[in-house]
Design a protein around this nucleic acid. Structure first.
Lengths: 217, 217
DNA sequence: TGATAAAAAGGTAATTCTACCTTTTTCATT
DNA sequence: AATGAAAAAGGTAGAATTACCTTTTTATCA
């Protein structure tokens, strides 16, 4: 291999980030361009530093999260390969992110050698999916026409996300209505719509969804 | 300093564990005895390996979590210093764990140099607390008599945890009653008790608590 | 301006959850 | 066998949530 693979790591957990960087530095083929704490930080550093071939990108970050970073990076630098670091394995999220432009997924509790493999794989073949991801993909692609509408349906709009956040803050529908200057009834209707969209039966399921998706500020 | 400080790292996230170990190996004063994936794994390895002076211990782990490990280690090897790795900064947890025998706390998103410092500090002075922890301590010790009862009240027993888990699986009280062969009424009473213990207003707060504490399997 | 879709709000009802009680049952310990 | 504590269950009631509708308002675009 002629040149080294340029890699950037974007994660707000310093300890985790420094750790993985220390590991990757041990590989001769790899060159760590730079690290960043979040999407905003990443794009700032992108101006000055070498453009990476591959970035390892955390999903849950303050300021600018993994999804927003993926979307923006795809527009500005479509040639950069993106590997998403996931905490729990979230199937819906995976298909969603592939549509947004992610090239691979790496559970944060993954074995070390798979981390190395994933970078080689993404760099050479353009993608890396472990078993779980592949399975999720197959399920999703079974009825490929449904993919787009599924995500239009499962994605919450701004107002709905705001309501979910207030629910997670233990507010009741009347309280949320007061907060957002809407009637209790409107909030209730939104709640029903949200439940339908995320496939939850009740408030408990809703909160679980919110936590998994990192909707909580 | 005559001898190196022997350190063990216990964390189920391989990536994180290997990362921090790689970092610590760079410090001359440190010697990494061994790593473990959880409490059970740790005690097994403790039989064969050198007894560490300090262990870095993750709170959220399957099989045997940080709390259980702290308690057991305190009984068997009271001279070993324990630094707890915390995800979010959870005040109640901190005072609780100090009572159980922890010597220091390290948020997982802490700066690198503080990791090194914390190990030196724990080894030499017997403790390490950053600002947040200290503040939490002051608040907790303001009314020192209340400390013990607070934790007895905030801790959930087995049955209560089971109920919380079923709530998080979107089951309703009647369904949980059927599942556990108890009346709906009993479940409702448990729910009330749980809400009181964890200081939640409603199901949303309950689920948030469960997620934060890692009660979900 | 008129058509259309989306957002907001209302109607109604069943179910569930929250709250504060009391009573019964179970179990361990003296 | 008696006691006391904890678990289980019942009573009652009000508030909140879930469910499925219809109607009104708002915004947008042709």
């Amino acid at each position: 291999m002629a040149n080294k693979i340029n890699i950037a790591v974007v994660d707000d957990q310093q300890l985790f980030r420094k750790g993985i960087v220390a590991l990757l530095r041990q590989i001769k083929d790899f060159n760590i361009c730079f690290e960043a704490e979040n999407g905003e930080d990443f794009f700032e550093k992108l101006e000055d530093e070498i453009t990476p071939d591959v970035i390892l990108l955390d999903l849950q970050m303050p300021v600018m999260d993994g999804i927003a970073t993926t979307v923006k990076l795809k527009k500005r630098f479509p040639e950069v390969k993106i590997i998403i670091l996931t905490m729990h394995d979230e199937e819906e999220m995976i298909v969603h992110l592939i549509e947004k432009g992610a090239h691979g997924f790496l559970p944060k509790n993954e074995e070390i050698k798979n981390v190395i493999d994933s970078i080689y794989s993404v760099h050479q073949t353009g993608h890396f999916f472990n078993e779980k991801v592949s399975q999720a993909l197959v399920r999703g692609l079974m009825s490929s026409k449904k993919i787009t509408p599924i995500f239009e349906n499962t994605e919450l709009n701004e107002r709905e996300i705001k309501i979910v956040q207030l629910i997670c803050k233990e507010l009741t529908s009347p309280e949320i209505g007061k907060e957002l200057l809407l009637s209790t009834k409107t909030i209730d209707n939104h709640r029903m719509e949200i439940l339908k969209k995320v496939g939850a039966r009740n408030t408990a399921g809703l909160v679980m969804y919110a936590m998994k998706k990192g909707l909580i500020s």
